[in-house]
């Protein structure tokens, strides 16, 4: 069985304040696992906030219920993982390929940034929930 050394879980309406709450969760998570190096903390935090922001900005409700954001982050030996979910949401639309836009574009860099920051990104859809699973293998100091 995989040993979970520390974890945080957030679920709430997909609204702006959720981004600050998730960021505060991550900051407190790193205090529990000081052996995770600064680079891993920095890159993983950035990837999780990018994914959560993408949901807050773009997820559309599938029905009458509002979209909720869920972020479950776990630290395992040599592995950081986050499940970033949009509950009660339509399937995502539009290109999911990560390509950088023109240099004067003011948006469209999020997916490319996420892919550059983590080891793997996978997408799952089940029971009206879109989930991005971000994994980063811890680097050595």
């Amino acid at each position: 069985m995989t040993e979970v050394l520390a974890s945080r879980s957030f679920r709430g309406p997909a609204a702006e304040y959720a981004i600050e709450a998730v960021h505060n969760d991550l900051d407190s998570l790193w205090l529990d696992v000081p052996f995770v190096n600064d680079i891993d903390q920095m890159t993983f935090t950035t990837a999780v906030i990018e994914s959560a922001s993408n949901i807050v900005q773009h997820a559309q409700p599938a029905g009458e219920r509002e979209v909720e954001l869920g972020v479950e982050t776990t630290v395992q030996p040599a592995l950081l993982q986050a499940r970033v979910s949009a509950y009660h949401a339509k399937p995502p639309f539009g290109p999911m390929e990560a390509a950088l836009p023109r240099e004067d574009a003011e948006s469209g860099r999020g997916l490319a940034l996420i892919e550059a920051l983590v080891t793997t990104v996978t997408f799952e859809r089940q029971d009206g929930t879109n989930t991005w699973v971000l994994s980063r293998t811890s680097s050595e100091d």
Binding site: H23, T45, T46, I49, E50, S53, Q57, D104, A105, E106, S107, R109, G110, L113
Partner: peptide, 15 residues
């Protein structure tokens, strides 16, 4: 901390 939204804002300000 800065994410891609923050970067987009800096680019908008530059323009």
């Amino acid at each position: 901390f800065m994410d891609s939204s923050g970067l987009g804002a800096l680019i908008g300000c530059l323009k």
